[in-house]
Amino acid sequence: MTALGFLHPGDAPADDYPRIEQLLGSDIRLDVVPTDLTDLTELEPGDRLAATAERLRLTGAEAVVWTGPAPADPGAARAQVRTLALAAGMPASATPLAFVNAAKELGATRVAVVATGPDPDTARFTDFLTAAGLRITRVATGTPDADLRALAAEALTPDAQALLLPDPALQTAAHIDALEARLARPVLTTSQTTVWEALRLTDRRVNSPGLGHLFTREPIVQV
């Protein structure tokens, strides 16, 4: 059994994680731990982080990913994730870093973005991607209840190598396959990339076609 922890600011989300857990198989458990920490910049050594880390350890997690927003600077995000890893006593990462790592896994350097969250969150996310070396070809904006297929088609450009949907409020796990087939591009979403990142931290590679190209990519063998 591989147990993965997800540190979520605010109340535990009613989102894709149970569905993804079913798609991954019976030997992987996903535990979402709500925290009153609201931003990655709050991950400083102290009582609040220590209490949160203890809750993570009680789940039996082998790795943890922070699911909230990150600073615009990837270097600062990595430094704060190291603080989380030391406090929790396990490998750690953050969802914005997961998007960057997943794009690199797919060989995508040019990405389109569907933005359905607040404008400041979108700006910070795209700044983060740009600082990490990705080029944003287009951003399509809408609301969480908008037609994802229409927004995805609006965002996609001929040179985009992947489509990113960073809003954690979107229920995407059931739609990744259909979107990829429609767009002929890999699709990366918050819950999907976050879980993939946690698995990467534990050196687990799971083939799950229902979660899109990211979960069916064969590892690169060094000869």
Rank of each mutant, 00 (worst) to 15 (best):
G68I: 08
T41D: 13
L86S: 12
G46L: 03
A51T: 15
V64E: 10
L179P: 13
D203A: 14
P158E: 03
A131L: 00
E21G: 11
D121E: 13
L30M: 08
A3L: 06
A12H: 04
D127P: 00
V221M: 05
L43A: 14
I20E: 05
L148N: 11
A146C: 12
L164I: 14
R217M: 07
L56I: 03
L214E: 05
P18W: 04
Q171I: 15
I220G: 08
A181P: 03
A14T: 12
G133L: 00
A123Q: 11
L156M: 07
A12V: 07
S208A: 15
P91T: 07
L30H: 06
L214W: 03
D36E: 12
T143K: 14
G142Q: 08
D73L: 01
T130L: 00
G210V: 11
T35I: 11
S93R: 00
L148D: 14
L30C: 06
M90E: 04
L199E: 01
R78E: 11
A102L: 07
D119F: 06
A181W: 15
T130K: 03
E197P: 03
Q80C: 06
L7N: 09
A102N: 04
T157V: 06
D119W: 08
L129V: 02
A184P: 01
Q22H: 13
L214Y: 03
P118G: 05
D27F: 12
R135F: 02
G89I: 06
A108T: 08
A79M: 06
R200D: 02
I136R: 00
L164M: 14
A160N: 08
E42C: 13
A103S: 10
S26T: 10
F215D: 13
G75C: 00
P34Q: 05
D36W: 09
R200F: 02
T116P: 01
V195H: 13
P91C: 10
T67F: 07
F99V: 01
A173L: 12
